[in-house]
Structure formats: C-alpha cells, structure tokens
C-alpha cells in the first residue's frame, strides 16, 4: 500500500437513513474510509450491517425516498461527488467507478446482447463509434477470460453460465478504465471452483490495470486471499480496520474476534465445538448513543452503555491509515 499517496477515493462521515412506516433506520452512521491507488479494500460485516447501503450511498444509487444520504463527503478525482447532482453522478458511475453486484442475472438486461451492454458505456462515456466500441468490447471479454470473445458478443445473458455472466459484469465495470471498482458480494452466488476462477482473474487484472478495488464479502477466506486492508462493519459503523495480516493475527474488536472464531477451519486441528456469537444485531432505529455490540459483547464495560466508542488508532498511524478500532475495551494483545 503506497502510504501518503493521494487516495483515489476518500469517504468522510457518511450518514444514510431510511424513512420507513415503522420509523427511521439508521443504516450508515458516520462511516469514513479511503482507498489508495491500486489497493484492494475488503469489507466484511454481519448481514444488515450497512455494507451495501454504504456503497450505494456514495454512488448515488439509492432511491430517495425512502433513503436520505444525510451527511458526509465523498472525494473522487478532486471533487465531492455528493454535491455534483444526478447527471454528474451518472457520469462518475460510468467513467470513474465501475461496480459489480451479487446477482449477475438481475444486473444484466436480458433483452440486449452481451456485446450491446459492454459497448453502451464506451459509446456514451468514451465517445467511441460503434465500430470502435465493438473492437474494445471484444478485447474486454477476452480480458475477463471468455473464449471466442468476438463471436460471443452476439450472445444474450441467458446463454451464458453464472460464472460467465459475472465475468461479463466485470467486463462492463472495466469498460471505461475506472479508477475504482466496487464489487458487492460478486462471487457469493457462484460455486467455489468458479469463484476461484474469478478471484484469479481479479488478482491478474489488478497487476495488469493497477485499479483500486473495494470488495464486499461475508467470506473471510476470500478476504484473506485478496485484500490488502480490511474494514469490519457492525450496525452501520466501522468497528475495526487494519492491514489484512494484522486483522487476522491480532483482531481487536470483540465482534471481529468472535467472528474469526465462529468459522470452522479447512486445515489443521479440527475444532471440537464451534464458538457462537449469542444474540442479535440491534435494530438501528436511532442514532447510536451507545456501543451497538454491547448486548452481545463478552467484554462490555459500564461506559459502553452510555458512550458510543469512536475509532482510535492502535499503532500510532492516523485513524484509517493503520490499525484502528472503535471499542472502549483495551485488549491485552493490542
């Protein structure tokens, strides 16, 4: 990670709520993170912890109402993209940020050919002619490992397998040479052997294209294999962030520690019994005034009930640049 370099993406104090019939849902609470050029940031967290809503908020993809992106700044290419309006955001999404979502079947349009869908952003954002776009589209399909690419441009999404559709999504996301690729559970629906193909592709593309990537997943194995840095979310907040080796070797937040212990191992000593995290995540109906994890926490202190812990550095580096945690408890192995 080239430290000190200007981040390609810098998110500060992002806040998103949903207004629902049963009241407000505070889905994203004061989330800050940044992404260095060429870096892969892994994002993990319990289901409902705000991973997807965070990324959708900064891309302006949430319908409002019910969503309300209430605060924060998202710096990309020298501009705060939360302030540039709908049209500006659409250009940013097409040209500067590519994204891939979990289910490739719902993200691809079934009535257009694969080639059409890859060419569209090239024509719109890069000003290419149809002929130029077709050549580039074939190159992109080849890049993501689809054999006989030029001929496959005429295929429709349903004629591709799940793994191939996910490759097409990646090709579309890469079409305009984005600075940032955001991938939200892109391999969750795929088989492990197909997932391994896609992860190999991403490793390869990173070295070739030097793109910065945000990779959301619930699979800590995937994170261990591809991330440089990891951000752990809980109840709409960043509770820990660290370089990948550090996070697995010395997790600090009680949630991260518990999470790493609940998953069984593939090799080595087989665990007699799995550790569990008792209880359930909070409903997030109001701005957090206390630690959101305290009811499930084995280290909770009195303070945790009255004061929401702020992120603090554990290694002297400024928060966001090294290992930081949002927890009042000080673990003995910090």
């Amino acid at each position: 990670m080239p430290d000190g370099a200007v981040p390609v993406l810098d998110v500060r104090g992002l806040k998103t709520i949903f207004r629902t019939r049963s009241g407000e849902v505070h889905a994203v609470n004061n989330v800050s993170f940044h992404l260095q050029p060429g870096e892969l940031l892994g994002v993990v967290g319990e289901s409902g912890s705000g991973k997807s809503v965070t990324m959708m908020s900064l891309l302006g993809l949430l319908p409002s109402p019910p969503a309300d992106v209430r605060g924060g700044e998202v710096w990309l290419g020298g501009r705060d993209i939360l302030k540039i309006g709908v049209d500006g955001l659409r250009d940013v999404r097409g040209a500067k940020v590519g994204f891939v979502f979990q289910d490739p079947m719902t993200s691809l349009n079934p009535v257009f050919t694969v080639g059409n869908q890859i060419m569209e952003p090239l024509i719109r954002h890069k000003g290419m002619t149809k002929a130029q776009a077709r050549i580039r589209a074939a190159e992109l399909l080849e890049l993501v490992g689809i054999p006989d690419a030029a001929a496959r441009l005429k295929s429709y999404p349903h004629q591709f397998s799940g793994g191939m559709r996910q490759r097409v999504m990646i090709a579309i996301a890469l079409a305009c040479d984005p600075d940032v690729l955001i991938a939200d559970e892109p391999t969750t629906a795929l088989d492990v052997t197909i997932q391994a193909q896609i992860l190999e592709l991403v490793r390869d593309l990173r070295t070739k294209l030097g793109m910065a990537i945000i990779w959301i997943t619930h699979d800590l194995g995937v994170i261990a294999g591809i991330a440089d840095r990891v951000m752990v979310m809980y109840a709409g907040q960043v509770v820990e962030q660290a370089p990948v080796a550090q996070l697995f070797a010395r997790p600090q937040h009680p949630y991260t520690r518990a999470l790493l212990k609940t998953i069984p191992k593939l090799g080595g000593q087989r665990e007699a019994r799995l550790q569990v995290i008792e209880g359930q995540p909070p409903l997030m109906t109001a701005e957090p005034g206390a630690c959101a994890f305290r009811a499930r926490c084995t280290h909770a202190l009195d303070r945790c009930a009255t004061e929401n812990p702020q992120r603090r550095s554990l290694d002297g580096a400024p928060v966001g640049h090294g290992h930081d945690v949002a927890c009042h408890w000080e673990s003995p192995d910090a």
Partner: peptide, 15 residues
C-alpha cells in the same frame, strides 16, 4: 483435489 484447493481459507499467510 480441485474442489478443496479452490476453497478460500481464512488465513492470509496460508492463502
């Protein structure tokens, strides 16, 4: 063999 080798492991050093 291929299936087991494709499973990601939650251990950056081993990965």
């Amino acid at each position: 063999r291929a299936l087991l080798s494709a499973v990601p492991e939650a251990d950056p050093a081993r990965e």
